[in-house]
């Protein structure tokens, strides 16, 4: 639709399109200030899929909200760091400028598609809305585009369904509608926050296939947020593992899967059922993730880590690079390996 944009901003695979530096997000709560994101670093390259992997409460959604300019305020606030899109810091631009980034350059798909769609508006209206509002398309032209977008996400008989309301769609179909809506303005980055968690397994696989195909067609970069290491393994080019508001390990998916170098990542790997283990008890990481009001000093993971030392209890680990692409925020990154 907009060839100019593609020529300008669709870079060859590998260029960094988004860089998050030392991000900090605070929430004011009755129990005091909670630092939900505490110095997170990650970057995203054109055309790739980056999985952000972590347990519930580790800060994945808040990171996405920070990138999208959607941290709820109050109680939330980005208290430090940068989100660089090209050479612009999204943390510092005005709300008006941010609205030209939202949907246009970075679009987002949410976990629960059913509640994330407006129950009072037709899906066609919701898909076409950015085209009408931001590109000034006529009602008829926008409707046509909405149907085309619905076809692109493989919604059967799109022309008939365009005037239906969200409650007439299943969870999987609603998620397809969400994806169609996100694609409307042809963004360079798509953030998908646990897009299949609310769906059953077969539908899950279909949505993941769809995302993969759309990425191939459009060349957009995807940030795929998930708590499921299997999904990350299957979809991602690179993985960033998040724990207590920080990225504790990141690197190419092969490195994370076969050479994990952070005890937490190793724990996650061990909790995957394998064929032999199918009837045995799974190994789990002992303990629970910290409550964000009481994050342990030093390395936040140390209370659950078998090899924690006094150093871990007092000193926050810096990222150790095992290869130019593969980093781990563990004092003993070079020594820990999965046996």
């Amino acid at each position: 639709m907009r060839p100019a944009k593609q020529n300008e901003t669709r870079k060859t695979l590998g260029d960094t399109v988004l860089r998050v530096n030392n991000l900090q997000v605070d929430f004011e709560t009755p129990l005091g200030t909670v630092r939900a994101i505490d110095g997170a670093n990650f970057d995203l390259r054109a055309g790739e899929t980056l999985a952000i992997l972590g347990e519930s409460g580790s800060g994945k959604s808040v990171s996405a909200a920070a990138v999208m300019g959607l941290v709820p305020s109050p109680p939330g606030r980005i208290s430090g760091g940068e989100v660089l899109l090209g050479d612009r810091d999204l943390v510092r631009i005005s709300a008006r400028e941010m609205r030209r980034v939202q949907g246009d350059r970075i679009a987002m798909v949410f976990q629960d598609a059913i509640t994330s769609l407006n129950p009072g508006l037709t899906v066609g209206y919701q898909i076409a809305e950015p085209l009408r509002v931001k590109q000034g398309l006529s009602r008829a032209a926008a409707r046509k585009r909405a149907i085309a977008l619905m076809e692109r996400v493989q919604i059967a008989s799109a022309a008939q369904r365009v005037d239906d309301y969200p409650h007439q769609f299943s969870g999987g179909m609603s998620q397809r509608v969400m994806i169609a809506m996100a694609l409307a303005l042809d963004p360079e980055i798509l953030i998908a926050d646990e897009p299949t968690t609310a769906l059953d397994v077969t539908v899950q696989a279909q949505i993941m296939d769809l995302l993969r195909n759309l990425q191939r067609e459009t060349g957009m970069a995807i940030i795929l947020i998930t708590h499921d290491i299997g999904v990350a393994a299957e979809m991602a080019d690179r993985v960033a593992v998040m724990y207590a508001g920080r990225i504790v390990e990141s690197g190419p998916v092969q490195d994370i899967l076969y050479k994990p170098s952070h005890p937490y990542t190793i724990g996650l790997m061990d909790s995957i059922p394998t064929l032999e283990q199918k009837f045995q008890r799974l190994r789990q990481i002992d303990g629970a993730p910290p409550v964000m009001t009481a994050v342990p000093k030093g390395c936040a993971f140390h209370p659950r880590c078998a090899r924690a030392t006094d150093l871990c209890r007092t000193q926050r680990p810096e990222v150790v690079y095992l290869s130019p692409q593969h980093g781990s925020a563990c004092h003993y990154a070079k020594e820990v390996t999965r046996e």
């Binding site: 999208m68 959607l70 941010m98 609205r99 030209r100 980034v101 939202q102 949907g103 246009d104 679009a107 987002m108 949410f110 629960d112 509640t115 994330s116 769609l117 407006n118 129950p119 809305e129 950015p130 509002v133 931001k134 969400m178 809506m181």
Partner: peptide, 11 residues
């Protein structure tokens, strides 16, 4: 939640 979706669209 649908309000967050609407905001994410840059409306």
């Amino acid at each position: 939640p649908y309000i967050i979706t609407a905001r994410a669209k840059g409306l």
